[in-house]
C-alpha cells in the first residue's frame, strides 16, 4: 500500500497533495494508492480527495483538530504499520518534513526528504533532491523496504481524478497520544493571493523597496498587474513587512516559476537557493555589483522607486489599449 498523507486547511485539500498523488502513481510500486485524512471535521476533505485515489482512510477526531507533529506522526505510523504500507508520502512543507522524520523513526524506515523525483528500482526507492543550498542535485537510495518520502511541493503536476469510482472511505481507530506542546497563541498570516508554489510569475521584494508601504506599492502593485504571486526575502519578513508564508529561500519556500522578478533584492545565497530554478530571472537593483545580477537573465541597474512604477504604468497602459481595441 502507498499511503498519501493529505494536507488540508480550512476544510480543503491542499494543492500539494494532488502532486503527492501524482508522485505515488509514478513511483512504480504496486498496491492501492491510499489517502490518509487526519483531523477534526474532515469529512469534506475525505470526499474531495476520494475521486483521486483508490481508497481513503479517515481519522476524524477531536484530538487531531490542532496539528501536532508528534501526535500526527504517531497516527501516521500506526496506520502505515497496520496497513502494511511500504511507501508513505508526505508534503515537504515544514510541518510535513517534521512529522515525516518522526514517522521514519517510528517505522525504522528510511527517509527520502524533499525529493523532486522518486521511483522504484528493483525494489529500492531511488530519488533525487537538491542540496548544498539547492546548488546540486543529489541522487539517493533508500536502504530499507519501508520508506517515508517527503515530496517537494510544486514539482509534480497535480494528479487528475482516476476516472473510476471514488475511493472507498474507511474510518480508522487510533491510539492518539496526548499533545505535549501547549500552543498558547497564534498569529496567523492572512493571504488571499495566489500561492507561491503554484504561480507562473512571482514578484519578490527585498529590503531595497524601503518599507512596508513601498513593498505594497511596488511589489504587490507589480504582481497585481502581472497576476503574479508575491514573494519576499528573509530581511523583509524579519522586518515584519510581510508574512513568513511569502518568504523565499533556504528557510522559506522554494519556487520554480516561469518568471521570477526580484525587486530590490541583493541575492544572498540563502535567497537564491529558493528561486534559482526559475526559468527566467529578472532583477532590479540600484547596486550594479549586487550578486543577484550574476544569476539573472535580465537586469536593470536602477532605482526601484522609478523603474517599477514605470513598469506598472506601461503594463496598465498596454492592458487598457488592448481592452480598447
Amino acid at each position: 500500500m502507498i499511503l498519501v498523507v493529505v494536507a488540508h486547511a480550512d476544510g480543503r485539500v491542499g494543492r500539494s497533495t494532488f502532486g503527492l498523488i501524482a508522485a505515488a502513481r509514478q513511483i512504480g510500486r504496486s498496491g492501492p494508492v491510499t489517502a490518509l485524512v487526519l483531523g477534526s471535521g474532515v469529512a469534506g476533505v475525505a470526499t474531495e480527495i476520494a475521486p483521486y485515489v483508490d481508497q481513503v482512510l479517515v481519522a476524524d477526531r477531536e484530538e487531531l483538530a490542532q496539528y501536532d507533529p508528534q501526535v500526527w506522526a504517531a497516527a501516521v505510523a500506526q496506520i502505515a504499520h497496520e496497513g502494511e504500507a511500504d511507501t508513505i508520502l508526505l508534503t515537504a512543507s515544514r510541518s510535513g518534513r517534521e512529522s515525516s522524520a518522526r514517522v521514519a523513526v517510528k517505522l525504522d524506515a528510511a527517509l527520502l526528504e524533499d525529493v523532486v523525483s522518486v521511483v522504484d528500482r528493483q525494489g529500492a526507492l531511488v530519488a533525487e533532491r537538491y542540496s548544498c543550498l539547492a546548488r546540486v542535485t543529489e541522487r539517493i537510495e533508500a536502504l530499507s523496504p519501508v520508506v517515508v518520502v517527503s515530496v517537494k511541493p510544486g514539482i509534480f503536476a497535480a494528479a487528475e481524478p482516476t476516472g473510476a469510482e471514488p475511493g472507498e472511505q474507511y474510518d480508522v481507530e487510533l491510539a492518539v497520544p496526548p499533545a505535549r506542546v501547549r500552543v498558547t497563541g497564534k498569529v496567523r498570516y492572512a493571504t488571499d493571493r495566489i500561492a507561491l508554489a503554484d504561480a507562473d510569475v512571482v514578484v519578490s521584494g527585498g529590503r531595497g523597496v524601503g518599507d512596508a508601504a513601498g513593498f505594497e506599492r511596488l511589489v504587490v502593485g507589480l504582481a497585481d498587474q502581472l497576476g503574479a504571486a508575491v514573494g519576499a526575502t528573509r530581511a523583509v519578513v524579519d522586518a515584519g513587512w510581510r508574512p513568513y508564508s511569502e518568504q523565499v529561500g533556504q528557510t522559506g519556500k522554494t519556487v520554480q516559476p516561469k518568471v521570477y522578478i526580484a525587486v530590490g533584492i541583493s541575492g544572498a545565497v540563502q535567497h537564491l537557493s529558493g528561486m534559482n530554478k526559475s526559468r527566467l530571472i529578472v532583477a532590479i537593483n540600484k547596486d550594479s555589483e549586487a550578486p543577484i545580477f550574476r544569476v539573472c537573465d535580465f537586469g536593470i541597474v536602477g532605482n526601484v522607486e522609478s523603474v517599477v512604477p514605470a513598469m506598472i504604468e506601461q503594463i496598465a497602459a498596454a492592458r487598457l489599449s488592448r481592452a480598447g481595441s
Binding site: V126, S131, T137, E138, K277
Partner: peptide, 16 residues
C-alpha cells in the same frame, strides 16, 4: 538508512 549516489552540479546558464 539512505545511501547517496553522489551529486551533480546544476549550473543553469543565465543570459545576464
Amino acid at each position: 538508512k539512505v545511501r547517496s549516489h553522489g551529486v551533480e552540479a546544476q549550473n543553469r546558464e543565465r543570459l545576464r
